[in-house]
């Protein structure tokens, strides 16, 4: 009798543990992100070498005339409105997915015109593809003979917010204003 009670008791505890684990797994978000390596102005740049408390990441290309410069302008405006003590805790990283036509110097010089603290990265196709997979982003380069440029690029349009480990802690899809970016930064600092 005593053995039966003990068996039922442990069975109940075991069931509760399994149930708790299933609920926990279902509710937890998958971990996206991590450290990565690319090229900055001709040198290797590794995220984990100099992470900030909050790191904003956006992919695009410097020949993009509309959405990308608008996003960079908004991020610059948002960072400019941060309190002085917080400015050095935040960094913006722009990664170009146009490896065939944009040099690392182009990308680095391009973003620094918006803000001298911005990091502009490029790299080999392999490096860029690894970053894209790591952060669950997408891009596609297609021939476009109708356009003077000869190709078009479709890419994810989300600003990712990363912690010091490079893990995505939040994100901001389009459309977004500089005020919304500022609010998101403050929420995550």
């Amino acid at each position: 009798m005593k053995a039966k009670i003990l068996t039922i008791f442990f069975s109940l505890i075991l069931s509760a543990c399994v149930l708790w684990a299933v609920v926990k797994i279902n509710n937890s978000r998958p971990i996206i992100g991590g450290s990565f390596k690319a090229q900055n102005n001709g040198h290797d740049w590794i995220f984990k070498d100099e992470p900030k408390d909050l790191n904003l990441l956006y992919i695009g290309y410097v020949k993009c005339p509309d959405i990308c410069p608008m996003t960079l302008s908004f991020i610059n405006k948002a960072l400019g409105e941060l309190e002085l003590k917080d400015k050095s805790r935040v960094r913006f990283i722009f990664i170009s997915v146009d490896q065939n036509y944009e040099s690392v110097q182009d990308v680095s010089g391009y973003v620094k015109q918006f803000n001298s603290t911005f990091i502009g990265l490029n790299g080999t196709k392999n490096q860029i593809d690894q970053i894209i997979t790591l952060f669950n982003l997408t891009y596609k380069i297609e021939n476009d003979p109708k356009s003077y440029l000869g190709y078009s690029i479709t890419h994810s349009d989300r600003i990712l917010l990363l912690n010091r480990l490079g893990i995505v802690i939040s994100q901001l899809p389009s459309p977004r204003s500089s005020d919304e970016i500022l609010k998101k930064i403050r929420e995550n600092l």
Binding site: I67, R158, P173, S174
Partner: peptide, 20 residues
Amino acid sequence: FSASEIHESLVRDGKMSMKK
């Protein structure tokens, strides 16, 4: 400018693209 085109930026399913 050497060339100019009318384009439209489109954001669909979280992805940005442009079409002539």
